[in-house]
Nucleic acid binder design. Structure first.
Length: 432
DNA sequence: TTAGGGTTAG
């Protein structure tokens, strides 16, 4: 009878987790303990940890972790993997790493969990390294290992690694699924190999919302807005309903291509035609869209018409646009709201500082510098990278440590001149 | 009658 009780509680708790009612799952766990007489097993503890992950509540997770240790269930591979997942999704990578290395009987799921943990926490190289250790430890990667490591490859844009992994899938005859194909397609896009992405897309036996979103954003980020818009129509005809990601990709694509009215029209159609509620990200993109095109009045009127309270990104976007198109009055207004929300981020002041510099308002610029110094603020430098001859080169904004700095700037200058002749983007010119 | 890992934007 007692065993049945455990099963009954377990069914309730996991049922709540599956329907994403994490709060209720934790409440039931609480009730179970109060009612007494039932010792939770590893299944229940995995579900309970899963509920903490879903709530992104690391405090509850720590309490549960303590409980797990006391009840001796921390050695269980299911429970330990749930903990690795919970800590990494809450941003505590160190804890996840420690638990992973302490696991005695790591199975493939545990390895996969750690591979995605690294990538999720901004260490894609570690993720790729760990992947290559799977086989050394006697496991064959499955579709989930591949999907996870492909995500890591995508974020480093390391095409060679991506191709090697694609090779694994073919040689080891790893059973593919839609997640893997989506990740593969996205990886080729991110590494600039559009033809491969298209090939995979065309040959997919089934396409889901993520498939379409990957394609639309892939085209958009490579400046092919027309193709992105035509895919959107195709997607609708195929019966897949667009979501907030679809719209963000479309608006950002219009943004890159300078199709201002088209982008705004798409934004307006979100709620009216598709029943998708715009989020802050969509608002930010529209402000950016108007701002980039120099339509500052439209940008500001749009901010004033927002139905949700604008956050820092909205004001920052307006400030950057005001700087680019030298509208000091609007820039100061945007900066006022921005600094009210976030007074301690260096990059906010830097935008304002540059605007004053561009407008030759030296006294105001000096005041901003003084404030920054007083607050001890610095801006984190921008960074980009490229893979050439199997090696990834990283560049930091303003970095002059390279032996070939002079040469680099000479080439940049000549590209700038060339662009000027061709009537290029004034913002890029200014950067050069 | 129950358990752990994966894909899309900016």
């Amino acid at each position: 009878m007692r065993e049945k009780d455990v099963v009954a509680w377990g069914s309730m708790i996991s049922g709540f987790c599956q329907s994403r009612k994490f709060r209720e799952a934790l409440d039931y766990f609480g009730k179970m303990k109060v009612d007494g007489g039932v010792r939770p097993d590893s299944d229940i503890m995995s579900s309970v940890i899963n509920a903490c992950t879903g709530l992104e509540n690391v405090d509850s997770g720590c309490v549960i972790h303590g409980y797990v240790i006391k009840s001796g269930l921390h050695q269980d591979v299911y429970v330990a993997t749930s903990l690795v997942d919970m800590y990494s999704k809450c941003g505590f990578l160190g804890m996840a790493e420690r638990l992973f290395s302490d696991m005695h009987d790591k199975n493939l799921v545990a390895w996969n969990s750690m591979i995605s943990s690294y990538c999720r926490n901004g260490l894609p190289d570690q993720s790729i390294k760990l992947f290559s250790r799977i086989i050394q430890h006697g496991f064959y990667p499955d579709s989930i290992s591949i999907t996870s490591v492909l995500t890591a490859v995508s974020s480093t844009a390391a095409l060679l690694n991506g191709k090697i992994i694609h090779g694994y899938v073919i040689r080891l005859e790893i059973e593919s699924d839609i997640h893997l194909e989506n990740a593969l397609m996205d990886m080729y896009f991110k590494c600039g190999f559009l033809k491969y992405s298209e090939y995979i897309f065309q040959n997919m036996s089934q396409k889901d919302l993520v498939t379409w979103n990957c394609m639309i954003s892939g085209y958009g980020s490579h400046g092919n807005c027309i193709e992105a818009l035509s895919l959107f129509n195709e997607m609708k005809s195929s019966g897949i309903k667009p979501d907030d990601v679809t719209f963000l990709s479309l608006i950002s694509s219009c943004n890159h291509a300078g199709l201002v009215d088209e982008g705004h029209k798409i934004f307006q159609s979100m709620r009216a035609e598709h029943g998708v509620e715009p989020k802050m990200e969509h608002y930010v993109n529209i402000v950016d869209l108007f701002g980039r095109a120099g339509r500052l009045d439209d940008a500001y009127n749009f901010v004033k018409s927002m139905t949700i309270e604008p956050d820092r990104r909205v004001w920052l976007s307006l400030l950057c646009a005001s700087r680019t198109h030298l509208n000091v009055e609007l820039g100061e207004l945007a900066a006022h709201y921005l600094l009210k929300l976030e007074p301690d981020r260096g990059s906010n002041y830097v935008q304002l500082l540059h605007m004053y510099g561009d407008a030759e308002l030296w006294e105001k610029a000096a005041n901003i510098r003084a404030t920054m110094k007083e607050k001890g603020l610095k801006k984190t430098p921008g960074c980009s990278w490229i893979e050439l001859r199997d090696k990834v080169d990283v560049f930091f904004s303003g970095d002059s440590s390279s032996m070939r700095t002079v040469e680099i700037y000479e080439i940049l200058h000549s590209i700038g001149k060339h662009m000027e002749k061709e009537g290029g983007d004034s913002e890029i010119m200014e950067t050069i």
